[in-house]
C-alpha cells in the first residue's frame, strides 16, 4: 500500500470508505490520503491491485461503477475512470459492455507485475538511505530478513495466504 510522507500535518484527511460491490456483497476498503505526495489515482490503483494480489478481490467479482466509486470516495469521476482504464490495460480488470467492471482471471499474477516495479522503487529508496547511513550489503540483507521475521511473528500464515 502506498503512503506519502508521514510529516503531513493533516492526519485527519484520510477517507476510509467501505464499498459494497452490489453483485457479490463483497467489501472493498479503500483509503485515500489527501495531501499525500502519491497522486490519488496511484493510491486507488495501488490499493485495488493489492486487493487483487491478496485475493480479497477474486476473479470474476464486479467492482463498483465509476460513478459509485467516485461518489463514495468523493473523487473526480475522470480520475476513477483513468484508474480503471489503467488497470484494464495492465490486465487486472476488464470492462464488460453494459455489465460493468470485473476482476480478470489473471488479475493476481498481473498485479504482482504491477507491484514488482513499485516495490523495487521503494526498496531502492530505502537502500539508498541505508547506504547513505553507511550500512554494508550484509547489514541491509539482515535488516530485510529481520523485517520479514517480525511480520511472521504477527501473522504466522503470512506466506501461505499470499501463495
Amino acid at each position: 500500500m502506498s503512503h506519502g510522507p508521514i510529516d503531513s500535518p493533516r492526519d485527519n484527511c484520510y477517507s476510509s470508505v467501505v464499498t459494497w460491490c452490489n453483485s457479490l456483497v463483497k467489501v472493498m476498503i479503500l483509503r485515500i490520503e489527501k495531501g499525500s505526495a502519491v497522486p490519488i489515482s496511484r493510491q486507488i490503483g495501488g490499493q485495488i491491485a493489492t486487493l487483487c494480489a491478496s485475493g480479497k478481490l477474486q476473479p470474476g467479482e464486479r467492482l463498483p461503477s465509476v460513478r459509485e466509486l467516485a461518489r463514495e470516495l468523493a473523487v473526480n469521476q475522470n480520475t476513477i475512470l483513468r484508474v480503471y482504464e489503467r488497470l484494464v490495460h495492465d490486465g487486472l480488470l476488464e470492462m464488460r459492455h453494459g455489465q460493468g467492471t470485473f476482476v480478470t482471471d489473471g488479475a493476481r499474477a498481473n498485479s504482482l507485475v504491477f507491484h514488482r516495479q513499485r516495490l523495487l522503487e521503494e526498496l531502492r529508496q530505502l537502500t539508498r538511505q541505508g547506504v547513505a547511513l553507511g550500512l554494508s550489503s550484509e547489514q541491509l540483507h539482515e535488516l530485510l530478513a529481520e523485517a520479514l521475521d517480525q511480520l511472521r511473528e504477527i501473522a504466522p500464515n503470512l506466506e501461505e495466504t499470499s501463495q
Binding site: 485515500i32 460513478r67 467516485a70 461518489r71 468523493a74 473523487v75 473526480n76 469521476q77
Partner: peptide, 30 residues
C-alpha cells in the same frame, strides 16, 4: 465534495471554483 461530484460533474456541468485547501482540490478538480 461528494455533492459536487454527484450533482455537478455527474451532470456534465462546468464548475469553476477557488479554494484555499489544496488537498481538498486535488481529488476533485480536473
Amino acid at each position: 465534495n461528494r455533492d459536487l461530484i454527484t450533482h455537478l460533474q455527474g451532470e456534465g456541468r462546468t464548475v469553476f471554483y477557488s479554494s484555499h485547501l489544496l488537498y481538498e482540490v486535488e481529488p476533485v478538480a480536473d
